[in-house]
Design a binder for these strands. Sequence first.
RNA 1: GUGAGUGUAGCUCAGUUGGCAGAGCAUCGGAUUGUGGCUCCGGCGGUCGAGGGUUCAAAUCCCUUCACUCACCCCA
Length: 418
Amino acid sequence: MELTRLRGFRDLIGADARAMSLVEERARALVERYSMKEVRIPVLERTQLYQRSTGETSDIVEKQMYTFTDRDEGETVVALRPEGTPGVVRAYIEAGLDRTEPEQRLFYSGAMFRRERPQKGRYRQFFQFGVEIFGRPDAACDAEILIMIDELCRDLKVPFAMEINSIGDQKCRPAFREALVQWGRAHWEELCDDCHNRIDRNPLRLLDCKIDAKLTESAPKSLDYLCDECRTHFDTVKELLSAGKVQFVVNPRMVRGLDYYTRTAFEVMAGGLGAQSTVVAGGRYDGLVETMGGAAVAGIGFAIGVDRMALAIQAAGMAPSTAPDAAIIAMGPAATRHAIVVARNLREANLNVEMLSPERKMKTLLARAAKIGARVAVIIGDDEVARGVVQIRDLKQSTQREVAVAEAARAIADARGE
RNA sequence: GUGAGUGUAGCUCAGUUGGCAGAGCAUCGGAUUGUGGCUCCGGCGGUCGAGGGUUCAAAUCCCUUCACUCACCCCA
């Protein structure tokens, strides 16, 4: 086969796709309980949008974007979205919401694209479910967002750990950043090659280097450089989280890869995922809207890595069953006409029903019913049609009973429920 | 972008000093009528990732290349 899928792009069939959908469905139900509104944004945007917001020196912008020149007269340079936040911020400003109704609670869901080397939990097309709240600079909003994430992880029954940190704001972060650079220069000889690059490109990243982890324990911490406002904000967030009964740990070494983050940063790690274990991450970005040409409006948001969360669900054995409640076995043409009506009635009673091919032998069909995990087989032959009944065979217990057609849904629901 | 590992049947994998391409599972059929899982018998199934080289002979040795997986990096 020569027309295979592209590297890093996945086909998800059956259970794998179901796990993804489950994450999205639960996330949607969650955000609707939090009074959030959906926003649908384009997959393709101007490359400049990401350069301006995500950061010129971030790896995402520098080497991971799918970017190309469009064929119009202006030869616009466009890119497949590598993340959702810049598009949402752009849409928010473009709709004039920053001036007319600055306080907005928005969510989005969809595919993102980054041209990275694939590995477990990292694909070139991946799905994010994200939330952005504008116009809420207060710590209660941070806390509410973290409570929401906690709620989702519990709902999905995935073992997880939440870490939070504060990385300061425009006022106090420059000093911290400078202190890190100074520290890095002073320890140049002891640091690895990657860290040498990070000192210029993204000094905060020094802190989560795996090779130099020991050494960076002595590096400056953002928490020691917070201004009074940031300090108070962070303390309030922690206090509210405790009040909200959320388990978390403060990780003073956690940083964000993207330029726009300020103050509260957070990350949720789940088990069973290998090296790419972060399933939710986000933080506050109070200066971003203004940077993008809008009013000075606060912002905070996060994204769920849907692919990774789905992997975590499956690793934890919490993936939902897709097995039908009943498999219909019709013997012969007359019975088939009858069976198709019975199948419809059962489905209207909210049962998951699979009708098997009427052109095969009973023996084969029963074997198939068992294979697809059906709880019961509903057997209909000419004799049953004549008498207005069906045979309901419990495939786990190997018991069988005859019931009137009108009673079938009840009987199947009972078998399922016991 | 860097590194390591792996490519043989639909799947999981054997294949010794180079000598006829294998097993288990799955699938399809059979063991007499409309009753599955267990058992028995049989069938289908292969460009040994691809290309080149060495050799009488290559899945096996050499070179090139592609793909997949994991990790670094990066990040959700």
